[in-house]
């Protein structure tokens, strides 16, 4: 698949939140770090995690015949390094600090681990894995932004009491996921070619 295809596939057809269920109900507004730092943090954490996972798995563990230990080695070797990097960034000033704070929360979670596992096990080359993980981060961010807008609207709506808050947001996530069901791998291939 071409790089454009990988971007479209990773961001929409294989959306990390709506198709794979990685991450959790977004709470960007609660963290108060703003949209842009969140987007940059998502892309950086996903790219860093996926690159390290890809390198550990394909350059070290697969030649040694220890590929099944990929997650364990990744957790012990790469996660502390990524955490330290984000802590250093969050200790900085201004925009960098906001990216660091947002990134620090994302390092350990199903989103960064799931994307790293997916891209390093799908036979991508390193650059393709990098592009796919960045696009996955963008796709997650896009879905989270749409859900935040829906949350804003729902706060002004007369939602039945039991559905107020999380339940209506989970149902809304399902409806957005339903809207994306038409965009699949075949659609992307037809759109951009092989």
């Amino acid at each position: 698949m071409s790089y454009v295809g990988i971007v479209l596939f990773s961001a929409f057809a294989a959306n990390a939140m709506l198709v794979y269920g990685f991450g959790r109900l977004p709470r960007f507004r609660a963290t108060g770090s703003g949209w842009l730092p969140q987007l940059i943090a998502l892309v950086i954490v996903n790219m860093l995690g996926s690159t390290l996972f890809w390198a550990i798995r394909n350059l070290v563990l697969v030649p040694l015949g220890l590929a099944s230990l990929d997650l364990f080695i990744f957790v012990l070797a790469a996660i502390p390094a990524m955490k330290s990097l984000m802590r250093v960034a969050s200790g900085g000033k201004g925009f960098l600090a906001r990216i660091g704070v947002a990134g620090d929360e994302l390092v350990v979670g199903t989103l960064s681990f799931g994307v790293a596992l997916l891209v390093s096990r799908s036979g991508y080359r390193m650059l393709e894995a990098l592009v796919a993980s960045a696009a996955s981060g963008f796709g997650y961010w896009l879905a989270a932004v749409v859900l935040e807008r829906i949350r804003d609207r729902l706060e002004l709506s007369d939602v039945p009491t039991p559905f107020r808050g999380a339940p209506i947001m989970i149902v809304s996530t399902g409806l957005i996921a339903m809207a994306l069901m038409g965009v699949d791998a075949l659609f992307v291939k037809n759109l951009v070619g092989q």
Partner: peptide, 10 residues
């Protein structure tokens, strides 16, 4: 589908 899963869980 995942969409149905979200709706059911909600």
């Amino acid at each position: 589908s995942p969409a149905g899963g979200f709706i059911l869980i909600g």
